[in-house]
Design a protein around this nucleic acid. Structure first.
Lengths: 225, 225
DNA sequence: CCGCCGCAGATAATATACGATTTCGAATAA
DNA sequence: TTATTCGAAATCGTATATTATCTGCGGCGG
């Protein structure tokens, strides 16, 4: 089934890389649920390779926090408690706030227009609401706003944190629909701040609070369930 | 020479772990300078193990940014340009500011006393100045202030960034002595803010600016050289 | 009846062997 | 002289084999 595509990708990027991506997809798509035990030999056989590249892939996933590893025992998909989701959201708010503030001054008119367009798409999608696409477009929106941040290190950290959140989110809850409307409005506010060249502090604060609000709404929704 | 200690550590933590730590020490102590090529077979022979654990160690170092890796070519110690140092400092300022602000409310009197003591030690050491110890104690100081941050994720990121900075710093410059005095004073200010229960914003801002100032002084000193 | 000991199965950790890719220099032809 | 091709050395990538470690279970002794 995936064999033809695999052999191709395998040759170019190496089996380790392929295994890495494959496992990550399994985790993100819930084929491997939290707590699932990743047995080297099994995966190696499934992918038609030896255990060595698989091992390497798993260690990389460990470094990203998607799996936990115990010596002489093995790896399993990270268990996710609500705390971890909270921590990552908070961290992302902090990083993204700072990055967006730095990026704001360098954004071109075209990029701002793109961002507006994306937010409009979000607004439309409020009708027949689909959490997955909403999340994806939302990600794009924030990515554009932060993309001109000259600090590459920050951007890297943000990327890692988004991946982590994708994992944690799908594992813990299916979204908070009520929040979507407010989120879109806050996006417009952020755009306004940037377009009117508001001080960097203000942009940073707005972005961070935007995320904090999402987090709060999540915590509330969990509390009342 | 290191054999007896090694065999012991090797047994407990595994050769991969040992290799990882050994290589890291070499890099941090400048035995492996930036650009140095890390050849699997060489290191494996030096450490008396096969290439497999060495390979794993190197991939872990890659994930931390201490070495760069190119497929079918190999690994080398990361080249460091001034930009990277700047980015990491900035990132650390952002993260540490937020973490310290969150931590402030939970710090015990004992911990604050410890912090004061460490800063006093820094003040003393201004006489016969030694950059290495200053840096180390400085790290401890900030670590204590942030240690009560409930967000474990933030703490992890900060730890990684400190390591990275240690690498970058020793590679690029030997410190800016003039800055040390101001740094100590700012530490006292930060302590004062925490002890008087200043708002979190204020603490965060102070810590971030503390680091920004260090960065500025570094950039200036480079500019006038 | 409960807890410790040891054995067997499973699985990770490492070693060794082989194949694949890149790099660099030397020989050759324009 | 210079560009190009060919080949050998170096080094990485992966597979296979071996060893070490953990886990769970069943028996033995208290």
């Amino acid at each position: 089934m995936t064999t033809p595509a695999r052999t191709e990708a395998t040759q170019k990027l190496g089996k380790a890389q392929y295994a890495y991506e494959w496992i990550k997809v399994q985790i993100l798509e819930q084929a491997f649920t939290p707590g699932y035990r990743l047995v080297l030999a099994n995966i190696a056989q499934t992918l038609g390779m030896s255990v060595v590249p698989v091992r390497e892939a798993i260690r990389r996933l460990e470094a990203e926090g998607l799996v936990t590893f115990e010596r002489n025992v093995g790896a399993r998909v990270s268990m996710v408690d609500g705390e971890q989701y909270r921590y990552s959201m908070e961290a992302l708010g902090i990083l993204e706030g700072a990055a967006t503030a730095q990026s704001a001054a360098h954004l071109t008119a075209k990029e701002l227009a793109e961002a507006r367009e994306l937010n409009a798409k979000l607004e439309e999608s409020l009708e027949n609401f689909d959490p997955e696409t909403f999340t994806a477009v939302n990600h794009q929106f924030h990515q554009i706003l932060a993309c001109r941040c000259p600090n590459q290190r920050l951007n890297d950290m943000i990327a890692v944190e988004w991946e982590r959140l994708n994992h944690l989110r799908t594992s813990t809850f299916s979204f908070v629909p009520n929040r979507a409307r407010a989120s879109v409005n806050e996006h417009y506010q952020i755009l306004h701040l940037i377009e009117t060249h508001a001080p960097a502090d203000a942009v940073e604060k707005a972005v961070r609070e935007h995320r904090t609000a999402t987090l709060r709404s999540y915590l509330n929704s969990r509390g009342t369930n």
